[in-house]
Design a protein around this nucleic acid. Structure first.
Lengths: 192, 192, 192, 192
DNA sequence: AATGAATGAGTGTTCATTCAT
DNA sequence: GATGAATGAACACTCATTCAT
């Protein structure tokens, strides 16, 4: 029975993720989500009181899943460079393996449908990453915004690389691209 | 007469840009746009046959304005590093000076409202930048995706920096942040 | 449950028939139909996806009801004249008993709102009548268009007589008028 | 100058007749009429204060033209049968020669757009015909509705024949069909 | 808890009509 | 008179949400 409930909720979430990514929030009706999930229109509202709550719950859960994926297997004892390389490759691999979730977060992170509260709540998951980066940079750099800058560059660049891999379909070269990207960032874009 | 026409069209575009950025496409009604622009509801449809065409026209024009802004004052005879530094600082300064336009493009670039045709048409403006980057990197790197990677990292990082400056309100430190960001990218994130 | 559904659909159809006949298709709004039918505006669209489909469904059903009415009680074994007299009187009586339906068909049969498909589909009901007329005339006349002519004269004249009865309010004389009309047609208009 | 005015008015009327017949009153916008007539949208309203007045004026004028056409060449001295035959053939020939006008009147004669006043005004043109028919029938028949019946049968049948000729494209057989139709009516439908 | 027909406020869009030029 | 951009009331239709079963 508990299984049953989870199933319906999950079915709704899955259908919503797929449809939102394909057609956007506005382009997706709750009726369509219900239909794709195989439940009645009323059922959706048993689990989520409004469409907006469905969107926010979905955002929160997907963001959580993605951040768990990213953290996996990072050895706290390893060198800073090793940890950063792992973080970089994790981020990209998680994105490539879950393109729907990845696009969903990228596309709707700044949507007005997502409330400030959800966004902030979701951000907490990233404290771990912030701490990781901070550790390394705090010695090496002095400007108070350097670390912030470094983090943003690191994070946004990883998103760019995921898109590059998915859109160009270069799944075979993936590991090479990941490493090359890391080198570009770590050693610098300067050609020489 | 021509002035008058331009004025109404411009007023609609301006109101639309502001409202879309604030509330999203769906959250903004054509009635609201008309009202803010100071024209009748029917007038909007004299200039744009549908809401979607208004959105796409707006996207196209804003993207054009932004890309013009980014290209300004780059000396083709300068060294590669100089040109890249200028490109970087232009991008960020254009973003900071036109935050509404900048956010609009960033937010809705992947919206289902924007048609493929608009996106592709708008992308043509970026050929110049691609050529600029290509020039420098083609000698220094060998992998065929390196340049693509470099471009994406460069471009997405600039967006991240604009957001950093706007959100933290550090307009005073802007030039310093721009240069520091460039150093991080150009010399590499590696702390040492 | 099934009863309920039929009721709402029927209520909408009834209200639509009345309003369309009174004010035409354009002069009748879907909101007005819904209101008169005692349902919400959205409900109408649960049964008919568009106003045009409502119009066409209504036309089709009314035409069907009318043709059923006309066919009733014609004895295939009777003489040709008897059958024609019955057909004539049926047509007029059906029209007089259902003036709204009769006017609706007469008024909107050539409206651009009615699609070709609906018109053709509705015409199939009249095959019976064509066969009946054909039977008698094929012996007596030789020109290949005579039967066509006879049918049209017969059919259009009946419409004229219905209007005459309704507009002049001579319901008492109806049977006499019907017979007199039949005589005029059958024996000829020639005064002597 | 007066010529000019007449031209614009006529151009609007012609365009309106064509468009209304093709697409109905509702399906035709005043903008479309103006465009087809080669005048500005505002110009139409210099000649006709509202769309409804345009429709009614058009109806009145077309009905007038048609009734003039029908009366032409009837010799008051001829026998009743000869006059009726001429009336019949005139009606059909006028309809076939001016199919647009003929359809317009047939289609919209009972439209709610046409005011009662227009309809009544237009009917006056038919007094001549009524008198003609009355003359002959008043001797031969006794029921007070007989003449009314005869007129309606006569009139509606002629409309049916015009449609038959136009739709089947039998312009070559026209005279034969006209005479055959008259015989059917005059001598009666009875096969023998 | 599950259903899905019913609801009605809200939206994009149309178009007859006006009026400044 | 002629023009056509501007107007805004009116409409068909949508869809998140409710609730009786």
């Amino acid at each position: 029975m508990d299984k049953q409930i989870k199933d319906k909720r999950t079915a709704i979430m899955d259908a919503a993720l797929k449809l939102f990514t394909e057609r956007g929030f506005h382009g997706t009706t709750t009726a369509q989500i219900s239909k794709d999930a195989g439940v009645a229109t009323g059922t959706l509202f048993n689990y989520f009181p409004t469409k907006e709550e469905l969107i926010n719950s979905l955002y929160f859960e997907v963001k959580g899943r993605l951040s768990s994926c990213i953290k996996k297997g990072i050895d706290p004892e390893a060198s800073f460079e090793t940890k950063m390389r792992k973080l970089w490759s994790n981020t990209i691999q998680c994105g490539v393996s879950n393109p729907e979730e990845f696009h969903f977060i990228g596309q709707f992170g700044s949507s007005p449908y997502i409330t400030k509260i959800t966004r902030e709540e979701a951000m907490k998951e990233y404290e771990f990453i912030r701490a990781l980066v901070e550790e390394g940079f705090s010695n090496g750099r002095n400007k108070d915004y350097s670390m912030e800058l470094a983090m943003m560059i690191f994070y946004h660049s990883s998103g760019a690389v995921v898109n590059l891999i998915i859109n160009s379909g270069r799944l075979d070269d993936m590991n090479e691209i990941i490493e090359e990207g890391f080198q570009l960032l770590w050693r610098g874009l300067s050609p020489e």
